[in-house]
Simulated assay, not measured.
Amino acid sequence: MSFFSKMFGSKGAESSSNGAASKEARSETITHLKEFVRGHQGCEAFIEPPTRVTQTTMVIVADTGEWTRRRVPDPATARKVAKQLGVPAFDVNLSGYPSRMREWNEKQRKQR
């Protein structure tokens, strides 16, 4: 069983209808997150709850404030992925976003 299969599991009929495309997307997500963490120091994961228009997402923020966001099946899976990546995970509803993320966003806006 692959790392991704262990983390995201099978959803029965849902995963059989999505087939290889779903597995490929999941693999790309894990690869992206691993590369981001490997290329940035001081990373932390912030788990965002699902809304009416988006499913659960995980934001990984580096110590510079640079960040990346990816969809995950649920908060429990997000915590498992964060643990596997070796980064602490926080519930964004409880902790909020780090100020370094807002500062990085503002700096990017000014550079445009």
Rank of each mutant, 00 (worst) to 15 (best):
S2W: 05
N93Y: 04
A45M: 01
T54V: 02
H32E: 10
R69Q: 11
S5F: 10
T56R: 05
N105D: 13
R70S: 11
G65M: 04
K83G: 11
N105E: 11
P73D: 10
D74I: 00
G19F: 04
R109D: 11
Q108V: 13
M101N: 10
S15H: 15
G12Q: 00
E44K: 10
M58Q: 00
R38F: 03
R102Y: 10
G42Y: 06
P49N: 05
T64M: 06
S99E: 15
T64S: 15
A76P: 05
R69Y: 07
D91W: 04
D63S: 03
A78H: 03
V87T: 04
F46R: 06
K23H: 00
T54Q: 09
M7A: 14
F3N: 13
K34G: 08
Q111T: 14
V87H: 01
Q108S: 01
R109H: 11
S99D: 13
D91C: 05
S27I: 01
T57M: 14
V61M: 06
P98T: 12
G12Y: 00
T31L: 00
K80I: 07
K34F: 09
V61F: 02
E35R: 15
V53L: 09
R70N: 14
T51E: 03
A45H: 00
D91G: 02
P88Y: 08
T77N: 05
I47G: 05
A78N: 03
I60G: 02
S16I: 14
T51P: 02
T64N: 14
G19W: 12
E28T: 11
Q108Y: 06
Q84H: 10
V61C: 03
M1E: 05
V92T: 06
P98F: 09
K34Y: 12
G39K: 15
W104G: 06
I47C: 08
R70G: 01
R102G: 06
H40Q: 08
R71I: 02
S95D: 03
P73Q: 07
F8A: 01
Q41P: 08
T54P: 00
T64V: 10
A89C: 06
E24M: 09
V37H: 09
K34A: 13
G96R: 11
E35Y: 04
S5D: 14
E106R: 15
R69N: 11
P73E: 02
F46A: 04
